[in-house]
Nucleic acid binder design. Structure first.
Length: 387
DNA sequence: GTAACCGGGATCTGCCATTTGT
DNA sequence: ACAAATGGCAGATCCCGGTTAC
């Protein structure tokens, strides 16, 4: 580990030399390497190694402009990078280009996460290889970088990345899980191993406290149901568990069942949002004459109801109730709330025109894919008397 | 055939605050 | 003091279809 710093120092020196040689046609890059030397001799202050440049590296700026980078954005995000004497923007650009990134993608990546240009080629190659252990193609990785450059570039610790992959694998996540995790929540892999470990331990402890039989498998099941869990703080997840338990007055076994089931999906909501959504839902249901037990049943069977924003949920309920569906039916089939308000409204209209009777036929028809719904409608209109 | 159950795909980053390192 | 590294936060669904069971 102690070697890392030394290697890095060597790399940055090595880079400044090789850059000039390998990019023979780039005068901007070489002036950039000369600039600090001139400044260094002028003040001639203390020892010697650091030119106290408070000014931006002009030739670097020129380079970035030529590459189509949004320099204003870069400056706003990481001003320090623009003052560095030695950077590797050309190397990075070539590297990414080789991987299939377009000019505009490269420019966009640097604009949004300027520190990317401080990574050496060796470092990039290593990191890319590690990502390729999880992804099948370079194209997939380029896609993620375009989406979230920070996830790839924020950490310079490849050893940590490697350990994370090993750690996650040791939890029982297979290649497919890992792929899903890295493409969905790439930040997970830039977390320190320690941070990820803390969350996993917290989940294991929680499971054990609730009387779960095998706490070792618990984190895996949570993670595969909620891919964002590892980029949340343990504080947030813990608070959400407490909120759910207190609001619904859950026993240990009920809580455990909820978490091992669909409840995992809502653990990463912000605490206030969860609380607020619960309170508003409760108010609404009480005003509709529901009992506490109904509320509990709804949330246990369909926790995603708490994920839906209060305004959205409210309008969905409005349009279902207005369309002749009862709250009792919704409680039996909460998945209808999964669908967008527009979708629900449209289907209610279609069904109404056909004289569909929810009291007689139930509301199953609302919980189906577009294809299945249309097929059903077709059958109904072919033989109108059946339903 | 179709209801019931279930899991998965798309996507979820970009900013700020704090700590660490030199 | 500065930049780098790392942690944490707010934001806020919808849809599809395979499989199973009747």
């Amino acid at each position: 580990m102690a070697t890392v710093a030394g290697v890095r120092a060597l790399l940055s020196f090595h880079r400044s030399v090789t850059l000039q040689r390998s990019f023979g046609h780039i005068p901007a890059q070489s002036t950039s390497t000369f600039l600090p030397r001139g400044l260094c001799s002028a003040p001639a202050k203390s020892s010697e190694p650091k030119p106290p440049v408070n000014t931006e590296n002009v030739s670097l700026l020129e380079n970035l402009n030529l590459m189509g980078v949004d320099v204003k954005m870069a400056r706003q995000r990481q001003p320090g990078v623009l003052r560095k004497a030695f950077t590797n923007e050309q190397g990075l650009a070539r590297f990414l280009q080789d991987k299939g990134a377009s000019r505009r993608v490269i420019a966009s990546i640097i604009s949004r996460y300027p520190r990317a240009i401080t990574r050496s080629i060796e470092h990039l190659e290593q990191r890319w290889a590690l990502w390729r252990d999880v992804f099948k193609t370079d194209g997939e990785i380029v896609g993620i970088l375009d989406r979230s450059p920070e996830s790839f570039f924020r950490s310079s610790d490849n050893g940590n990345l490697e350990k994370n992959i090993a750690f996650l694998t040791s939890l029982g996540l297979n290649t497919k899980d890992l792929h899903r995790l890295l493409s969905t929540a790439p930040r997970t892999f830039s977390n320190s191993l320690e941070l990820n470990r803390q969350m996993v331990e917290f989940l294991e402890d929680t499971c054990a406290e609730l009387g779960g039989t095998n706490p070792e498998q618990f984190p895996k099941s949570i993670i595969s149901r909620n891919l964002y869990i590892l980029i949340r703080s343990t504080k947030r997840v813990k608070t959400n568990i407490d909120i759910l338990r207190a609001s619904l007055k859950l026993s240990d076994s009920e809580m455990l069942a909820l978490l091992q089931g669909p409840g995992a999906e809502i653990l990463d909501l912000s605490n206030e949002y969860l609380k607020n959504n619960f309170n508003r839902l409760q108010e609404r249901m009480v005003s509709l004459g529901c009992r506490k037990a109904d509320i509990k049943k709804l949330i246990l069977s369909y926790p995603m109801v708490l994920y839906i924003g209060t305004d959205t949920l409210s309008s969905k309920l409005d349009c279902l109730l207005r369309g002749g569906v009862t709250m009792k039916q919704i409680l039996e089939k909460p998945k209808v709330l999964d669908y967008s308000t527009e979708n629900i409204t449209g289907r209610l209209g279609e069904l109404q025109r056909m004289g569909y009777d929810f009291q007689k036929n139930g509301i199953n028809i609302l919980d189906s894919s577009r294809k299945r719904f249309d097929a059903k409608i077709e059958r109904l209109s072919a033989s109108p008397e059946t339903k």
